[in-house]
Amino acid sequence: MNVIETKSLSKVYPGAIDVVALNEVDLVIEKGEFTAIVGPSGSGKTTLLNIIGGLDSASSGSVIVAGEDICTMKENKLINFRLHNIGFVFQAYNLIPVLTAKENVEFIMMMQKWDKQKREERSTSLLKSVGLAEQIDKRPMQMSGGQQQRVAVARALASKPQFVLADEPTANLDSKSTKNLLDIMARLNKEEETTFVFSTHDQRVIDRARRVITLEDGQIVSDERR
């Protein structure tokens, strides 16, 4: 089952000299994949992730997520679509600093109007599954970078999204935290069939991916399945 499908996806940043960030990208990502998008800086990895995630608009082409073309959606519908279908993990964790780990995870479910009991059950279970059962009442400032990123993964999974987009999720982590995080994501991918799509430079992430898509100058130059 296709979770993401791009057709002739292009992105051009206009200027004195137009910059082509993505050039006619055709890509299909299926449910349960654990995919790394790699490539040198400026190859279009982040742009591709942003467009797939509905954060940026395409210059041409389409992005079909869960059967809907998100390129044609109006802003408010797109925000709602992101809320219900896409989980995000950012390089700098980006947790809400005034909320505890548990509240950060519950935040998404609250916006989806889950009832309190279900929210509490799911947030506790997710934090437990990322190894933070003891940290649920701590605020981001009281946690290490690795712990914060694990909370971010739990938050991304909270609403049971179609897929999780992770932009350089290990860039700020040490080796131990990186391994820990990758183990958790791999387990969640396997146990819950959650689809993960990373953009990364990190060889440790590339080594764990089951599919590696390489971009260069906005085009897919290789697509390796393992």
């Binding site: 995630g53 954060l55 925000i79 809320l83 219900h84 950012f90 980006n94 809400i96 998404i108 938050r155």
Partner: peptide, 16 residues
């Protein structure tokens, strides 16, 4: 600014 970017990215409505 960054936090506003994050919360709207993850699906918080601008109205909220």
């Amino acid at each position: 600014k960054r936090e506003f970017g994050v919360v709207t990215s993850i699906g918080m409505k601008r109205r909220s």
